[in-house]
Computed example of a mutant assay.
Amino acid sequence: MFGTSLHWTTFFYLLIDILIVLLTLYFSKKRVRTSFKRFLILGLLFITYNLTGGLLPYDSFPGPLILQYIITYGVAMTLCVFIIYYLYKEYDIVVLKFNSSIRNLAIFTTSSYIILFLVPYFLTNSLILARLLFTIPISVAIIIFLFIFYNRISNPRNANAFILRRNKLSMISVGCIALLPICTAIGDYQWFTFSVMNMAFFAITAIEIDRYLFFIENNTRMYEVFAFQKKQRDSTVQRKIIYEDLTRREIEVALSILSNLSYKNIAKDLSIAESTVSKHASNIFKKTGVKNRREFLKRFRKRKQIK
């Protein structure tokens, strides 16, 4: 399209991604939170990925051909690492097995690209050989990561439907990342490769929409919590109480506590450590002006008990 290598499917995904980002900006303009910023960055990275990967290589592009591949591969690797970072934040993960922190994953990806792609390319001047040397080891590493991530989030015992859907959609996102090196090794089938990668964005978008609907569905259960927070905010000066909104993770934990789940079961359902649940609960109690779990349940389950 437009006299470039841009495929019509890539252009279609580009328009959808732009629409999602614009809608996110519209709905988040009154709610400045880290989670919205993170999603916006993800959307902008996908737009950049579709543009660079769809338009390049371009014959009239200034500089050597390898520069265009450095740009496209660099954007793709940045996007993949950021998707993993996004999911780490989603599940409160700091590090998985084999010391796979975000920092180490970024270092591993960058060094592999330099050693296994750039060096062989400059030595042999063969793009096909360099691509194979890079994509095969990376594919193996990502597939191993896929299984590790699956074991980390799988088998919640008392999880609600939202958590189960989120786990499935998260696995789709990681699965798409695992398929990217394979798609690259197969060849320049832009319509297929970009369909796979944009599926990861759509899966994460579905998680965010599903979370929003889940919170609306449970709005009645959280009504007294939010109402009490507003009361705190309105009387901050008089009562010297510091007001903060509950984060989306704290809302999930609060809803689980209101369902009378133990911290151990909440940890299993949300695929986080029990100590992390305890930390979130402590923040919830501070923000809502109670001392402990018993007081929280007594105050905010009152409406449910009356019914």
Rank of each mutant, 00 (worst) to 15 (best):
H7G: 08
T9D: 02
I16Q: 04
L19Q: 02
I20G: 00
S28W: 05
R31Q: 13
R33K: 09
F36Y: 14
L44N: 01
F46K: 04
T48R: 01
P57G: 02
D59I: 13
P62W: 12
Q68C: 07
T72M: 11
G74K: 07
V75A: 01
F82G: 10
I84D: 05
L87F: 09
I93E: 02
N99V: 02
N104M: 13
T110E: 00
Y113F: 15
T135A: 14
I138H: 03
V140I: 15
A141R: 10
I144G: 05
N155P: 01
R157G: 05
R165Y: 09
R166P: 00
S170A: 15
L180Q: 11
G187S: 09
F192W: 07
S195Y: 03
M199H: 00
F202M: 11
A206N: 02
I207H: 08
A227T: 09
A227L: 14
D234L: 11
D234Q: 13
I241R: 07
I242Y: 13
E244C: 01
E244Q: 12
R248Q: 09
E250D: 03
A254Y: 02
S259D: 15
I272F: 06
S278Q: 10
K279I: 06
N283Y: 12
G289L: 10
K298C: 00
R303I: 08
R303K: 11
